[in-house]
């Protein structure tokens, strides 16, 4: 089966600064992958390139065999590291918006999750707390039956209880053939759900291995290995 994501000598420059430099990697389907690295290592740049929010300076990026285009956007569900919704809209309006544009969006699934979270659909997004807004965003993203979920810092700004809910939501809402790519600094929180990790260092992969490999080969947890590789 074709890999869901392939990067070949992918390069992105901002002025004279290389955010990504000749990055080559491939992601298989049906796994949860941690994209880990310190600030400025190129995680968000890679994620934006996957979603067509940045134009590569060089190299190629393919999702399901295609360069980012409307067809790849149909199968990629993206959670940015910031609030990306029009805050004047009501929760119900943003549900309709997703339903309008994404064929694979399940309003029923989203409604169930909102009910569990006791979020009133009549509320405007600007009236929600930061944590609740992040949950709404995650609900929207995970209510799509996508092939690739790309989550940029999904647990960065929420309390530990909310983190558990978010991770549980991710685990229970993706199908086994889909791939989930999660970028985060909070490695210990997500370590248990990861199948594979990619360490990014200065725009290049420092490590691309399964969690089992890391444990058997290095005899360490992902968190411990991360601290060792990126020691200041």
């Amino acid at each position: 089966m074709e890999p869901i994501l392939e990067c070949h000598e992918l390069t992105k420059k901002y002025g004279n600064y290389f955010a990504l430099s000749n990055l080559t990697l491939s992601l298989e389907r049906g796994q949860i992958v941690g994209l880990l690295g310190p600030n400025g290592s190129g995680k968000t740049t890679l994620i934006k390139l996957i979603n067509g929010l940045l134009t590569p300076t060089g190299g190629q990026i393919m999702i399901n065999g295609l360069a980012p285009c409307p067809d790849t956007k149909k199968i990629v569900s993206y959670l940015p590291d910031r609030n990306f919704l029009n805050e004047h809209m009501r929760v119900s309006q943003i549900l309709s918006y997703y339903e309008d544009f994404y064929d694979n969006f399940s309003t029923e699934r989203a409604s169930k999750m909102l009910e569990t979270l006791e979020i009133d659909r009549r509320l405007r997004l600007q009236d929600l707390s930061k944590g609740t807004l992040e949950k709404v965003q995650l609900v929207l993203v995970m209510s799509r039956a996508a092939d690739l979920y790309v989550l940029d810092e999904p647990i960065g700004g929420v309390d530990p209880a909310a983190r558990d809910y978010i991770l549980q939501t991710i685990l229970t809402n993706y199908n086994e053939n889909a791939t989930v790519l999660i970028s985060t600094h909070l490695i210990s929180d997500i370590e248990n759900i990861l199948d594979r990790v990619i360490f990014l260092k200065n725009g290049q992969p420092a490590l691309n291995a399964s969690v089992d490999e890391i444990r058997t080969k290095y005899g360490k947890s992902v968190d411990a290995l991360f601290r060792e590789v990126f020691k200041c």
Binding site: N51, G52, L53, C69, P70, D71, K73, K74, V76, Y78, P80, R82, N83, F84, L85, N86, F101, Y102
Partner: peptide, 13 residues
């Protein structure tokens, strides 16, 4: 702006 993160990830050109 911030909304661009949604607009540009809609399945439209």
């Amino acid at each position: 702006g911030r909304e661009g993160y949604l607009s540009w990830t809609l399945p439209v050109s």
